[in-house]
């Protein structure tokens, strides 16, 4: 490995995300992660955002924890594409030399960060659920699940800089906005040679489903083979609507074609960390648990008292989901009326 002097590397950087022209909520989660790390190191926290027409939308990044906001605003940066994003970020990181660089483990973060790790000659840890600073060594302690959630690994990057990690979306709450916070907004310009991309975006086919993509959802109503028939997805949707939640599913349920694969939770699907996860008629196979066991609160309904899902549930009901769900919906609606 190259011997390099990393003594100038200082500060914590996070990479914000813009979707459909708006600063996406994962950016605020990243600031909450970054704030804790920057305070522990007694350094500044910076966020960098790339996008189109975003320079007037970045104030909240300061009120939610950033000391510095680097903005690259250009029509060519409207959508994430590897070439321009990675070229620009590589240049900025080589210029400003942060010691820690964090992004969200979204499809963007999981594509961009590996490319940056190669371009910057730095190590990267994926999909962390915990980040801390070791006070003595001033090193980033990265914790992540592996082997289908069977083990947790603690990882350090002793030599190379920046220390890079992606964190699971929803694994931290954003800080409440503090309108009095002071910070600096720095607009950076990049010429056309920085903006070219080998990959072209031709179109976007929006998925017609209610609720946020499951990786972004605060509440997920998930179902498995116990739902018995695709017709009953409607029942799940009725409940999800009350929580403004999104639908999730086990592999068996997606394999049966009851819902598109993009809703599958687990080892060969999505990894999610919502605040609230309902599991209806899901047995709780390890491969399913791998995708959802870091949810804040887990509710399970299963007719089999021995179902493994109960081992991870905060509240479990042994019963028939077709009895429980309609009653639950009507109770919640009564509450809604009371409120």
């Amino acid at each position: 490995m190259k011997e390099r002097d990393y003594s100038q590397y200082k500060g914590v950087w996070v990479i914000g995300e813009v979707r459909e022209g708006q600063i996406h909520a994962v950016s605020y989660e990243l600031l909450a992660w970054g704030r804790g790390l920057a305070d522990a190191l007694a350094v500044d926290l910076a966020i960098v955002v790339l996008g189109k027409d975003i320079k007037d939308k970045v104030d909240e990044l300061i009120s939610r924890g950033a000391d510095k906001v680097y903005v690259i605003d250009h029509p060519e940066l409207e959508h994430f594409r590897v070439d321009p994003y990675s070229n620009i970020l590589t240049a900025l990181i080589e210029e400003y030399k942060p010691e820690v660089l964090i992004a969200s483990a979204t499809t963007m973060g999981r594509t961009l960060m590996p490319v940056l790790a190669v371009k910057l000659d730095a190590g990267l840890t994926a999909d962390c659920t915990g980040l801390e600073i070791d006070p003595e060594e001033r090193l980033l302690i990265q914790t992540r699940p592996a082997v289908g959630g069977n083990i947790m690994a603690t990882i350090k990057t002793p030599v190379l800089r920046p220390q890079m990690a992606t964190v699971r979306p929803k694994s931290k709450r954003p800080l409440p906005p503090d309108p009095g916070r002071k910070g600096e907004i720095i607009l950076k310009e990049f010429g056309p040679e920085w903006l070219t991309s080998r990959v072209r975006r031709l179109d976007f086919i929006k998925e017609e489903s209610e609720g946020a993509p499951i990786q972004d959802a605060e509440c997920i109503v998930a179902f498995g083979k116990g739902l018995k028939d695709g017709r009953h997805v409607q029942l799940m949707q009725d409940l999800a609507r009350i929580f403004e939640g999104s639908l999730g599913a086990s592999r068996n349920a997606t394999d049966l074609g009851w819902i598109p694969y993009s809703h599958q939770v687990g080892l060969s699907g999505k990894t999610v960390s919502p605040r609230l996860y309902f599991a209806f008629g899901i047995s709780g196979a390890v491969q399913h648990l791998a995708g959802m066991s870091s949810a804040e609160t887990i509710i399970a309904v299963n007719s089999d008292p021995e179902a493994n899902i109960f081992n991870v549930a905060d509240y479990g009901l042994v019963g028939d989901l077709f009895e429980v769900v309609p009653l639950l919906i009507s109770r919640l609606k009564e509450k809604g009326k009371e409120a």
């Binding site: 979707r19 499809t107 963007m108 990959v199 072209r200 975006r201 976007f204 086919i205 972004d216």
Partner: peptide
């Protein structure tokens, strides 16, 4: 397959 849908790309 990305968050919220499918992006069509050419390379």
């Amino acid at each position: 397959a990305v968050e919220g849908g499918h992006e069509v790309v050419e390379s």
